[in-house]
Design a protein around this nucleic acid. Structure first.
Length: 327
DNA sequence: AACTATTGCAACCGCGCTCAG
DNA sequence: TCTGAGCGCGGTTGCAATAGT
């Protein structure tokens, strides 16, 4: 089983760090002519003072001709989020569903963009479920205070409204975590006549993760097979490659791609993928809401039922006060 | 303009898996 | 069955670019 010494310790004279254009050219020329073959012996044959591992990485992440450069599209982003909710940090597996993207690129994109975005939305990037830690709850009180302040200054100012929406979203996440049917409807009213659920647009593919971005326009999303051996339509992403989606329209894919972003329960999280082939129209995310719900009445009931936890009461009192901008 | 902080990405490191001998 | 070489993956680091003060 022993681990390969590779080139990390005993080859101190091997070059490390950024690759020069000359090195790139040597590596590319060699691979184009001979193929990469054995990575360990490649550097010697290609006249490169690098370890084979470094050569493989450079080729895989940068020099390959099929690598797609540039920003990730929204479709790709949603695909990554959904695949991550199913596969976890299996970047290489996720990369197989995104032609032209490397595992390293996806990993970096996750860590620098998506992860933060989910955190800002109050979602745990690891579990894709609403966060419950206290720091997160502090954010809630801060948001509510900010909303109050902003509303006092200018009730129609856009940033104040956004803060209100953020606070509403945090409340929604919190309540989802508490996860009772009664409570799942509580914050619907926070959004007024707007979306009944913060992620509704994402789930049905009509809006973006970003509040200030337009909804994505569905477009053809026929994913063609990379290999001829794995062409099966309508099967889950776990068992099959991205070729599995051939024949589905973008809207179909968006439906099931995002449907697991915030699974309402572990059960639904594990079954929704399997249902995809049978029930492509199912976008249920467990957010049956009543626009007439009295959100703070429900909150008060929660407080009565649960404990006399003053922290929660403080939040409730603050949010439900007559001057609260989110009422 | 200078300095500092933050961000984004390429590259490295080390572990574990696979497979041939 | 055991061993070790080779490979691939995920986590981490280093640094250049950019933003903020």
């Amino acid at each position: 089983m022993g681990r390969s010494p590779c080139c990390s310790s005993d080859d101190a004279n091997l070059k490390k760090g950024p690759w020069t254009p000359e090195e790139d050219e040597k590596l590319l020329d060699y691979i184009n002519t001979h193929g990469h073959g054995n990575w360990k012996t490649l550097p010697k044959h290609a006249d490169l003072n690098r370890c084979g591992k470094s050569c493989r990485l450079r080729w895989a992440n940068y020099l390959r001709t099929d690598i797609k450069r540039g920003r990730f599209s929204e479709e790709e982003e949603r695909l990554i989020i959904n695949l991550h909710s199913t596969l976890g940090n299996k970047w290489s597996r996720i990369a197989t569903y995104l032609p032209g993207r490397t595992d390293n690129e996806i990993k970096n994109f996750w860590n620098t963009h998506i992860r933060k975005k989910l955190l800002n939305m109050g979602l745990d990037p690891n579990t894709h479920k609403p966060r419950t830690d206290l720091n997160h709850l502090l954010n809630l009180t801060q948001l509510i205070c900010a909303a109050q302040l902003g509303s006092l200054v200018n009730p129609w100012e856009s940033s104040a409204l956004k803060v209100q929406a953020d606070a509403a979203q945090l409340l929604q996440n919190l309540i989802q975590t508490l996860n009772t049917n009664q409570l799942s409807t509580i914050t619907a009213g926070l959004m007024g006549s707007q979306k009944s659920y913060p992620y509704e647009g994402l789930i049905n593919g009509t809006s973006s993760l970003y509040a200030d971005e337009p909804a994505p326009v569905p477009k053809k999303f026929h994913l063609m097979s990379q290999t001829s051996s794995d062409q099966h339509q309508g099967q889950g992403v776990i068992e099959n490659s991205w070729a599995s989606f051939e024949g589905y329209e973008s809207s179909d894919i968006s439906d099931f791609l995002i449907s697991e972003l915030v699974p309402e329960s572990p059960e639904t999280a594990t079954t929704s993928m399997n249902q995809m082939g049978d029930d492509k129209t199912n976008t249920n995310h467990g957010s049956t809401v009543s626009p007439d719900s009295s959100i703070f009445q429900a909150w008060e009931k929660l407080m009565d039922d649960e404990t006399d936890n003053s922290f929660w009461k403080d939040i409730l009192d603050l949010a439900s006060s007559p001057s609260s901008p989110i009422l």
